[in-house]
Amino acid sequence: MGQSQPFRATALIVEDDLAQREMITLLLEESEYDVIACGSAEAAELVLNKPGHRIVLLMTDVNLAGRMNGVELAHLAKARHPHINVVVTSGRPLSQPLPGGTKFWSKPWAPLDVLREAEVTLERTPDIR
């Protein structure tokens, strides 16, 4: 019998700007993450509701296409998955409070910020890689 392998970290990226979504995805894939990328909070909600995913990092923009914004998605994600590390980004000041433990990054942020957050998340989550 073989030993069980640690799971590979999964990040959920929610950004309606395709170029930004692709850039974040590439950065996280280079950081040894599996990435699920969505263009709307509604699509991300379906991923969060699906059993079997162990998402450790959610990075979302505030302003998204659809009825739900990134702050609302952050609240939903933290309620359903309290362990998840959530980063909310926006080019504007927030008008809604974030759930506890959620980070806010003002745009523009540097790609190095994504890489650092990916590493911090890996360090805090057991049984990864």
Rank of each mutant, 00 (worst) to 15 (best):
residue 1 M to P: 05
residue 5 Q to S: 14
residue 8 R to Q: 15
residue 14 V to G: 07
residue 14 V to T: 10
residue 16 D to N: 13
residue 16 D to C: 10
residue 20 Q to K: 07
residue 20 Q to S: 09
residue 20 Q to E: 09
residue 20 Q to Y: 03
residue 21 R to E: 10
residue 24 I to N: 14
residue 26 L to F: 14
residue 28 L to A: 09
residue 30 E to A: 09
residue 31 S to H: 02
residue 32 E to F: 04
residue 34 D to A: 14
residue 36 I to T: 07
residue 41 A to I: 05
residue 45 E to K: 10
residue 46 L to E: 15
residue 46 L to I: 01
residue 46 L to G: 09
residue 50 K to V: 00
residue 50 K to M: 04
residue 51 P to E: 01
residue 52 G to E: 02
residue 53 H to G: 09
residue 53 H to S: 06
residue 53 H to L: 07
residue 53 H to A: 11
residue 54 R to T: 10
residue 56 V to G: 14
residue 58 L to K: 02
residue 59 M to N: 01
residue 60 T to Y: 12
residue 61 D to T: 02
residue 61 D to Y: 00
residue 63 N to V: 03
residue 63 N to P: 00
residue 64 L to V: 05
residue 69 N to P: 09
residue 70 G to P: 06
residue 70 G to C: 02
residue 73 L to K: 07
residue 80 R to H: 06
residue 81 H to T: 01
residue 85 N to Q: 11
residue 88 V to D: 06
residue 91 G to C: 03
residue 96 Q to R: 08
residue 96 Q to L: 05
residue 102 T to N: 09
residue 103 K to C: 12
residue 105 W to V: 02
residue 105 W to P: 08
residue 106 S to E: 13
residue 107 K to A: 03
residue 108 P to F: 00
residue 109 W to L: 03
residue 109 W to V: 00
residue 117 E to I: 07
residue 117 E to P: 10
residue 123 E to F: 12
residue 123 E to M: 12
residue 123 E to I: 08
residue 124 R to E: 15
residue 124 R to N: 15
residue 127 D to T: 01
residue 128 I to W: 06
